Simulated scan of single mutants.
Amino acid sequence: MELKEPVRKVLNKIYEPDSMIEKPFKKYHMAFKTDELGRPILLFLGKKELDGRIKGERFSRRFKTDNAGVIIKDHWEHKGKAT
């Protein structure tokens, strides 16, 4: 499973560092954790349960950088079901 462009647009923005952010996205709910620079690195996408958890899919972001810290590759990896 791959993330579509509308989801990637939301995830390419910078948010509050080291936080968990929840947003509605079309008919789904989206929750993502940000790193120390405010970049989303962990994503949960699906339906929100009554207890606040999101049941759906889980994704993890990987960055490949060079020696100077410049991002060479930015990749979202599907990690399976989120319960």
Rank of each mutant, 00 (worst) to 15 (best):
K4P: 14
I54A: 00
K9Q: 05
I71E: 12
A31V: 10
L37E: 11
E77W: 06
K64R: 14
E57A: 03
H29K: 05
K64Q: 14
E57H: 14
A31K: 07
K13S: 06
L11Q: 15
N12V: 01
K9V: 03
K4W: 13
F25W: 05
K73H: 07
K26H: 00
H75A: 15
T65S: 06
E49W: 10
E49Y: 02
K27G: 00
E49K: 12
K26V: 02
F63Q: 04
E16V: 04
S19F: 09
D74A: 05
P40R: 02
L37W: 12
V70K: 04
K55I: 04
D74R: 15
E57W: 09
K4N: 10
L11M: 14
K48C: 01
E49C: 12
I54C: 01
P17R: 14
S60N: 14
P40F: 05
V7T: 06
L37R: 07
R39C: 00
T83L: 04
R8I: 15
D18T: 13
Y28E: 04
F25Q: 02
R58E: 09
F63H: 04
S19M: 01
A68T: 08
L43E: 04
E36N: 12
A82S: 12
L42A: 15
V7L: 06
G46M: 10
A82Y: 01
V70H: 15
P17S: 07
F63K: 14
R8L: 08
G38N: 02
L11W: 03
E5N: 07
E2N: 14
F32N: 02
E5T: 04
I21F: 08
K81N: 12
F32I: 03
Y28C: 01
E77L: 14
E49Q: 08
H29T: 02
D74L: 15
L43Y: 07
L43W: 15
F25A: 00
L45C: 12
R8W: 14
I41Q: 11
F59K: 02
R58F: 09
I14A: 13
H75L: 14
L42N: 05
L11S: 06
L37C: 04
E5G: 00
R62T: 10
K26Q: 03
D35N: 07
F25H: 01
E2W: 11
L3S: 03
L43M: 11
K79D: 10
M20Q: 06
E77V: 12
G52R: 04
F32A: 01
H29N: 09
S19A: 12
Y15R: 03
M20Y: 13
M1A: 13
M30F: 06
I41K: 08
A82C: 07
D74E: 09
L50C: 03
L3V: 06
E77Q: 05
E49R: 12
M1W: 12
G56W: 08
M1F: 11
E49N: 09
V70G: 03
E2F: 11
P17W: 09
F59S: 01
K27L: 01
G56H: 01
N12H: 11
D35I: 02
I71D: 02
K79E: 15
Y28Q: 11
K47L: 11
E36D: 13
